[in-house]
């Protein structure tokens, strides 16, 4: 029987449980990593709106502006705005 098994095993290239495990893990891990770094949907629009308002008064380049929504310890969300102001005087009137 062992001899028969040996030849049969060679023929049928069936999907092993290990490859199923790998496939399932790749999907779930990718999904969970995605959620981990997920920013809320409104963030891009909020960023744009804030920039529009800021630029009414001061000169802000894209590089000198950053926005970040952070989740601290699961129950505290912090919206962090970082705006670098340059020396060049900008007239507002």
């Amino acid at each position: 029987m062992a001899l028969l098994d040996y030849f049969l095993r060679k023929k049928e290239k069936q999907v092993t449980t290990a490859s199923k495990a790998k496939e399932r893990l790749q999907i779930i891990v990718a999904h969970e990593r995605n959620n981990r770094n997920k920013q809320p949907d409104y963030l891009p629009q909020l960023t744009e709106d804030i920039l529009v308002v800021l630029r009414k008064y001061i000169h802000v380049s894209d590089e000198s502006f950053s926005i970040n929504l952070d989740n601290k310890d699961g129950d505290l969300n912090v919206l962090e705005l970082n705006i670098e102001l340059h020396d060049e005087p900008t007239s507002t009137d």
């Binding site: 092993t16 449980t17 290990a18 490859s19 495990a21 790998k22 893990l25 891990v29």
Partner: peptide, 17 residues
């Protein structure tokens, strides 16, 4: 068990993590 396809291999786990 890895050779028998019953267990994730070193490469599999490295790929995922």
């Amino acid at each position: 068990r890895v050779e028998e396809g019953e267990m994730l291999s070193v490469e599999d786990v490295k790929d995922i993590l």
